[in-house]
Simulated assay, not measured.
Amino acid sequence: MDVLSDVITVARTGRPRSAYVRWHAPWGQQFASVPGSAGFQVILEGSCWLLSPPAAPLRLGAGDVLFVPHGRGHTLADNPATAVTVPACAPDDPELPESCASDSVGQLGRDGPVTVVLCGAYQLDPSRTHPLLLTMPDLIHLPADPGRHPELLAAVQLLAAETGSPRLGTSATVPALLDTLLMYILRIWLAEQPTHGSTTGWAAALNDPAVTAALHAVHRDPAAPWTVAKLAAEAGLSRAAFARRFSALIGQPPLGYLTWWRLTMAARLLQATQAPLRSIAAQVGYTSEFAFANAFKRTHGLAPGAYRRRS
């Protein structure tokens, strides 16, 4: 696994949800704030306005993507002056009823011009959210630009086809396509961040070959007996130079990040599997179950067994 793949895999809980909705003007939909979630809207046809005070209204057109990494509330409407209602089925709510599952096709509004929107949502575990997601702004707008982002356009078109006309295999296809779309959104956002002269932040870190090599090594094999010297060798730097560069970009020292990642992986394994504690401890680099339990409790506030029972 690489860092960006793990950002999605580790933080997500449950099944991603999506809905394909046709809105006929006049319409307005409020998406309530849902902490512990990430959502997106893709404008497939027509246009609408993003209303997110105190920012000025923003017009969205076909092909535009709106990503909401922290579940912030916002509103979409055919016109900034349209009265906004809150429908019973809000597609970015992680607690959607089954009628709004990934094969949902809805139609709202009257008989005015049509706007077609693909909505999706992920439920995230705050205790496992990667710091890369935490550094992202509340709302990210990626304007339609097929020439620059053909892979994003392809993912959107495939999702629109599956959710707009469900068929055999759609239930298996849509979650994979949602993950693909999210991956492309993250790639594009990272690539567009200014890194020249930047000394901190994940965008700068993932554009630094030395730090990226060390991060990939940790994510590829978290159980390895890593030391600062071994990670520096992966990065091709001296121990001191590597430690300074890693800490400056990531915001914590190399072994601090390694410990956080190991215990984040352990939390996921405790929730997703019934593996014995000694097996999980070994998978994340602890030779002693006792040492693992102490480290886990310091980070998560619960012993591993209690954490699993609560989950």
Rank of each mutant, 00 (worst) to 15 (best):
A154K: 09
L134M: 11
P150L: 03
D125K: 02
G169A: 12
R128I: 08
G109N: 08
T173V: 14
E151C: 04
D179T: 15
L134R: 14
R148L: 13
A203L: 06
T129I: 15
D93A: 12
P150T: 14
A155I: 00
G164D: 08
G106E: 10
S127G: 04
L190S: 03
L118M: 02
G112Y: 11
A191R: 14
G120V: 03
G164T: 13
A191I: 09
T129M: 10
R187M: 14
P166G: 01
R148A: 15
V156H: 01
P137F: 14
L118R: 03
R187L: 06
L118W: 00
P126I: 11
V174C: 05
N207D: 07
D145C: 13
S102I: 15
W189L: 00
H196V: 15
A101R: 13
N207C: 06
P166Q: 06
T180I: 05
P175R: 05
T115K: 07
R110E: 07
M136E: 11
L206V: 04
Y184L: 06
A191Y: 04
A154L: 10
S165V: 11
W189M: 02
T200A: 10
S171M: 08
H149T: 14
G201R: 12
V105T: 15
A144I: 08
Q157H: 09
D92Q: 05
L181T: 11
T199S: 12
P175K: 02
S198L: 01
L133G: 10
D92W: 01
V117I: 15
Y184E: 11
L182Q: 15
G164L: 12
D93H: 03
L152N: 04
H130V: 03
Q107Y: 00
G120A: 01
L108M: 14
L158G: 09
L159G: 12
L139N: 02
S171F: 09
A155Q: 06
V156N: 02
L159Q: 09
L182P: 11
A191D: 15
A144E: 06
V114D: 00
A154G: 02
Y122F: 10
M183H: 15
P150Q: 05
Y122I: 00
P150M: 00
M183Q: 12
G201K: 04
L177W: 14
G109E: 03
Y122D: 00
D92Y: 00
E95H: 14
L142G: 05
D179L: 12
D111M: 01
P137E: 07
S99G: 08
S165D: 08
L152A: 07
L190H: 05
D93S: 07
T170A: 04
T199K: 05
A121T: 15
T135H: 00
V174M: 01
H196R: 10
P94H: 01
A172R: 06
L108A: 13
A154S: 07
R148W: 04
L132I: 13
L190N: 07
G109T: 10
L168V: 05
L182K: 13
L158S: 13
T129D: 01
D208I: 11
G112Q: 07
R128N: 06
V117E: 04
G120M: 00
P143T: 10
E98W: 05
T170R: 02
P131D: 05
P97F: 00
T163K: 03
T200D: 04
S99Y: 09
A144N: 09
A191H: 10
P91I: 07
P97H: 00
P146V: 03
Y184P: 01
T199Q: 04
G197C: 10
V116L: 04
P166A: 07
G197I: 09
D125Q: 08
